[in-house]
Amino acid sequence: MKTRKKSKFFSILHKLFPVKKLFLPLAGTLAGAVNGLFGGGGGMIVLPALERAGCPVRSAHATALAVILPATLVSALVYLFCGVPFGTLLPVLLGTSAGGLWGAALLPRLREETLSFLFALLMLLAGVRMLLP
């Protein structure tokens, strides 16, 4: 019930393409496109798709990672070959690594609903702010 509500979008996809076998490849196509074009966010599509396909939450997270990692590697290489300079990459990388460990350690101590809500709020604010000049 919860996963069905989570992914209205995919239920629309389901109605358009009733062939079950097409569902995962379609979700993969969309996720790859978003990941390559915007430099992230593919996991946000793969994760609900896997939950919709009947994966339990924990293995959906793990499997989504196994899908997004090679896709990210390939698009990162394309960005590299297209000549994006990487002088500023090091501080960001150090930050995300430290932050990643911190976040993983914090996770068990926080309420998931609060966190999810906060994250959605931040995404909304970031999105609206980026629409403005």
Partner: peptide, 23 residues
């Protein structure tokens, strides 16, 4: 934790598309 049967149908189009759309 990885559901191997679901990786390939998702990852194959994802990898192809992410290269194309990165370009």
């Amino acid at each position: 934790l990885i559901e191997r049967g679901k990786v390939l149908p998702l990852a194959l189009p994802a990898v192809l598309c992410s290269a194309l759309f990165a370009l």
